[in-house]
Amino acid sequence: MDDTKLNTILDKHHRDPAELLAILMDIQAVENYLPKDDMKQVAKELKIPFSKVYSMATFFATFSLEPRGKHICTVCMGTACHVRGAARLVDQVQRDFEVEAGGTTDDMFLTLETVNCVGACALGPLMIVDGEYHGNMDAGKLDRVLRKLKKQDAKE
């Protein structure tokens, strides 16, 4: 991230170390992950230890320290989704894309993530693909959603 962008984010949060979590979220929103150099820069600008920034980045599940794929597929693992078979959805994506939960395919096409409940429990099992919510999923629907994604990409 260039200095101007980073400074804009830091200024938005008044360069307040108490806002570290929010600052890191804003960086990730731009970069899709948390680059090491940006984290070092944040530490320097806020005059806090780098170890603290790193500690924060590894504690919260929302952060990724590795670049993530072009598409992000998040499967909800809340209880309601679990009793309706969410684990099978994860298995299916893992099999179809040869990717571990939390990991990214070698071609950077897709990152598979799990989340502990997004609060749309009545529609479980549920997954979010690139910000779009898909409720009442099953093997067939999942297949259709992901095939569409692949097709879309092939076109581009």
Binding site: P49, F50, S51, K52, Y54, S55, T58, F59
Partner: peptide, 19 residues
């Protein structure tokens, strides 16, 4: 100097230097 810190959480918690 806070050169080190806890990283991760739960069973992935470690005492480490950054990265």
């Amino acid at each position: 100097v806070s050169a080190i810190s806890f990283t991760g959480r739960g069973q992935n918690k470690r005492m480490q230097s950054p990265y």
